[in-house]
Amino acid sequence: MNWWFLWGAYFLWNSYVFVAMWRDKRRAKLHRWRIPETRLLIMGAAFGGVGLYAGMKCFRHKTAHLKFVIGAPLLIVVNLAMIGFFYYFTI
């Protein structure tokens, strides 16, 4: 398995989740349609925890919501554990 490809996909996905957090923050300021919180958390759970947490901190978005304050760092740990699990069992 080509791990460089997987790390590249991981980087791109987390970049997408980061941009989604920026777009949701911008739409909140403009009082427009927002990305549902559940969708943001699902994107974080689908290996996007780093992008979710970085977007939260960088844009100061969703920092008052306990499910994001606790959930985003927890999703990073779960994502890294899953990557380690896949790495361990494929080599």
Score class of each variant (00 low, 15 high):
K62L: 07
N2T: 11
L41C: 00
T38S: 11
A45Y: 06
V78S: 01
A72P: 09
R34N: 01
H31C: 13
R39Y: 01
V19T: 10
Y88Q: 14
P36H: 03
A54Y: 06
W4K: 15
M1E: 11
M21E: 03
T38P: 06
H31L: 12
R32I: 11
R60K: 15
I70K: 08
I91G: 12
G49Q: 02
L52D: 02
K57R: 15
L6N: 05
A72M: 08
L66K: 10
F11W: 04
A81W: 08
R39L: 11
Y10N: 05
N79P: 14
M43Q: 04
L12T: 02
D24P: 02
F86S: 09
L12M: 05
C58E: 13
Y87A: 14
Y16A: 15
G8K: 07
Y16W: 15
A54M: 14
H61S: 04
N14H: 07
I42L: 07
L12H: 07
R34I: 03
R23T: 08
A9H: 06
D24Q: 05
P36V: 03
M21L: 08
L52T: 02
N79H: 07
R23W: 05
A20G: 08
M43F: 06
R26I: 12
M82L: 15
F5R: 14
F18S: 00
W33R: 00
I91E: 11
F11L: 15
P73C: 00
Y10T: 07
F86V: 12
K67I: 08
M56Q: 04
Y10E: 00
G55I: 03
Y16P: 04
W13L: 08
I91Y: 10
E37P: 03
I70H: 09
